[in-house]
């Protein structure tokens, strides 16, 4: 079975430790899924090139070009890996703007692995007090292990602490995928211009408003 994993990285520099962490999580997830006989399609979405498009989206209400594709990719993904740097005690503004642009029900039931990077481990609870509630609101299934990497984690392999967390989190993500729950198929259908054929027949709309 082919599985699609979207990876969103809000890192700003190049190379970016946020992107490095995203890649490690993605690689481990792909490795585990491949072992289980799945084919995996990975779509890595860097938010930096979408920054202007996101600001435009806030003002116009519609997405175009690469942003439109990125949003579609996230909506279609079987799983999501979302990684942000910590800015001022929370996810970055760019990270939030992207998830503000994602449809409210696009991630319903989607397994999500959250991760963050910062200069110091003192920010690590950002994952629990900011990212987890964000994805809970979007009704995504966030894996229990959230992965935080401070500068010191990249500088030292002592005890393999980061590696262990990456493996643990990827395993949990893969386990959710392995359950093979047809989450997308069982969602209630929201009628949009992309699926107008799901519009209820007018007689039933009329019946619903009359006594």
């Amino acid at each position: 079975m082919t599985l699609k994993i979207a990876v969103v990285s809000a890192g700003l520099s190049d190379p970016s430790s946020t992107r490095l962490l995203a890649d490690r999580l993605a690689d481990e997830s792909v490795r585990l899924l491949t072992e289980r006989g799945h084919e995996v399609v990975l779509d890595v979405i860097e938010l930096r090139p979408l920054a202007h498009a996101l600001a435009d989206f806030m003002l116009t209400g519609f997405a175009t070009g690469d942003l439109e594709e990125a949003l579609a990719s996230v909506s279609r993904a079987d799983a999501l890996i979302a990684v942000t740097p910590v800015f001022t005690a929370s996810y970055s503004g760019l990270f939030k703007m992207f998830f503000d642009a994602v449809d409210n029900d696009a991630l319903e039931g989607t397994p999500v692995l959250v991760a963050a990077t910062a200069g110091t481990a003192r920010h690590s609870l950002v994952l629990e007090h900011a990212l987890r509630p964000l994805f809970a609101y979007l009704k995504a299934v966030v894996v229990p292990t959230a992965v935080f990497a401070a500068s010191e984690d990249f500088g030292s392999t002592a005890g393999g602490a980061l590696d262990t967390r990456v493996r643990k989190a990827a395993n949990q993500l893969v386990a959710l995928l392995g359950a093979g729950q047809p989450t997308r198929a069982t969602r209630p259908v929201k009628v949009t211009i992309d699926n107008p054929e799901d519009t209820p027949d007018f007689a039933s709309m009329l019946a619903a408003v009359s006594r």
Partner: peptide, 8 residues
């Protein structure tokens, strides 16, 4: 962008 209105 509300197909319900086109239906109406």
């Amino acid at each position: 962008r509300s197909p319900e209105i086109a239906e109406q």
